[in-house]
Amino acid sequence: MTLDLKIASIDPKAMGKVAVLMGGNSAEREVSATMSGPGVLAALQARGVDVLAFDPAQRSLHELQALGVQRAFIALHGRGGEDGTVQGALELLRIPYTGSGVMASAIAMDKITTKRLWQSVGLPTPRWVSLAKHQQQREQLMAVPDELGLPVFVKPPHEGSSMGATKVNGYSDMQEAVALAARFDSEVLCEEFIDGQEFTCAVLGQGEAAVALPVVEICAEQGNYDYQNKYFTNSTVYKVGQADPQWQAQVQQLVLQAYRVLGCRGWGRADLMLSRKDGRVYLLEMNTSPGMTSHSLVPKAAAAVGVSYEELCLWLLSQARLDSQS
Rank of each mutant, 00 (worst) to 15 (best):
D185P: 06
D226H: 13
Y259T: 04
P156N: 12
F153I: 13
G266H: 03
V305F: 09
P96Y: 01
D11M: 00
V188T: 07
R138A: 12
F73R: 03
L92K: 00
Y259N: 10
D146G: 10
G84N: 06
S324P: 00
Q319C: 12
T293I: 05
V49N: 00
G196E: 11
G23I: 10
Y171C: 07
V49G: 01
Q58R: 13
C264A: 14
M22A: 09
G170H: 12
P124I: 04
D195K: 15
W267D: 06
A179S: 14
P56R: 00
S294T: 10
T2V: 08
A8D: 14
G39W: 10
R47I: 01
A108F: 10
N169A: 14
E176F: 01
R94Q: 15
F73M: 02
A202M: 07
N224T: 12
W247E: 10
I107Q: 06
A46K: 15
Q119E: 12
V261C: 02
A220L: 07
T2F: 04
R71Y: 09
L284V: 00
A33R: 15
T293G: 11
E208S: 08
M103L: 15
R276I: 02
P156E: 07
L213Y: 01
E30R: 11
A66Q: 05
Y97T: 00
D110M: 04
E139D: 12
Q135H: 09
S26M: 05
M174R: 12
E192F: 03
E159D: 09
D173N: 06
G170C: 12
K115P: 01
S324W: 01
G122P: 01
Q140C: 02
S161F: 12
T114I: 03
L256M: 13
A89Y: 08
Q65T: 15
A258I: 04
A89E: 14
M15L: 14
F199D: 05
A220C: 10
P214R: 14
S26Q: 06
G24S: 06
V102H: 09
A42K: 15
